[in-house]
Simulated scan of single mutants.
Amino acid sequence: MSAWMRLRRTLDRLTIYLPLILFGVLALGSWWLVRSMPELLPTGTDKLLRVEPDYRLEKFTVKSFDTSGRLTREVSGQSATHFPATQELHIQNIRIFAENDKGTRLQANARRGVSKETEQQMDLTGDVLAVRAADHQGPRMTLKGEAVTALMDQERLVSSVPVEIVRGGDVFTAQTMDFDTRSGLYELQGRVKSVLAPSSKPRQ
């Protein structure tokens, strides 16, 4: 058999296996390309974007009015940062003013406040001071504590840490508190202590 015939047969065999060889080369090339290409977005980028704040406010005031135009709530602060991942607004040096339809007025301030959009509440922390103005339901009341949660829709202040309440001349301290600002009633639990001022009414 001539050399030419042997070469011809060898080429015929290679032609049969050529598609398989090409597919193998393409597969290896694709694998190499995927392994070699750098990631378009680094690992964790999506998570980072979601936890970063999407806007900030400086020296702001937000006011709410009822249908008659009466001011019902005012929230102001030194600065505020909104976090879309948790739907929270973090406020520094927060101040709150609120007045309900019965004329009950409440003012509060704290070093920090966190407003949760999904819940009608505001978490106040750091030198919290809340004052309920005197009205026909009772004298002026002052609340002090390190952490107080304001439940806006229920008009309540609650705390699971020690608080101090001054009602007129009386002073109360407790480990937990549930304060209904609408009625002026409050529930104290834990180690409750009180100092009652002497009555100014003359004895009968």
Rank of each mutant, 00 (worst) to 15 (best):
K102Q: 15
E39F: 01
D66F: 07
K201E: 15
L48K: 13
K144V: 00
P42E: 11
S64M: 06
D180I: 04
N93A: 12
L124N: 02
S160E: 15
L22M: 13
E88P: 02
T61N: 09
Q78H: 12
F83N: 05
P198W: 01
A80E: 01
V161P: 01
R105V: 13
Y17V: 15
G190E: 03
G138Q: 10
M1C: 11
D46I: 14
S199Y: 07
E187S: 09
P38E: 05
G77L: 03
E117P: 05
A85F: 12
R9Y: 15
A133Y: 07
R182K: 09
T86I: 11
S194T: 12
G24A: 12
L89F: 03
K47I: 13
V34I: 10
L143E: 02
G69S: 04
A133S: 14
S30T: 12
S160T: 13
A133C: 03
S79W: 14
I165Q: 05
H82S: 06
E52G: 12
G103V: 03
L106N: 02
A130W: 00
L89N: 00
E119T: 10
G69N: 08
L33Q: 06
G138Y: 07
L40V: 13
V163F: 02
T43F: 04
A147L: 06
I21P: 02
E52S: 15
V114H: 01
M5Y: 11
L129K: 11
A108C: 05
G29N: 09
R167P: 03
Q87G: 12
T142A: 05
A147K: 14
T125R: 10
S160M: 04
P84R: 10
M5S: 12
R112V: 04
S199N: 14
T10C: 08
S36Q: 07
F179M: 08
S115F: 13
Q78G: 05
T118I: 10
L188D: 07
N100Q: 07
E164G: 00
R8V: 14
K116A: 10
T67E: 14
V131S: 04
D66N: 14
Y17S: 14
Y55K: 06
E117H: 05
T104S: 06
A3S: 13
A85G: 06
D180T: 07
E88C: 02
T173E: 09
V192I: 08
G44F: 04
P42V: 09
A110T: 04
T181E: 10
R182E: 15
M152Q: 14
A197V: 04
V195I: 04
V163L: 02
D180H: 07
L89S: 06
E74S: 12
K59Q: 13
G169R: 15
K59D: 10
T15Y: 10
Q120R: 12
E58T: 15
V25C: 09
V131Q: 06
T81S: 05
F83P: 04
P198R: 08
V114C: 04
R8Y: 11
L28C: 11
T43Q: 13
A3R: 11
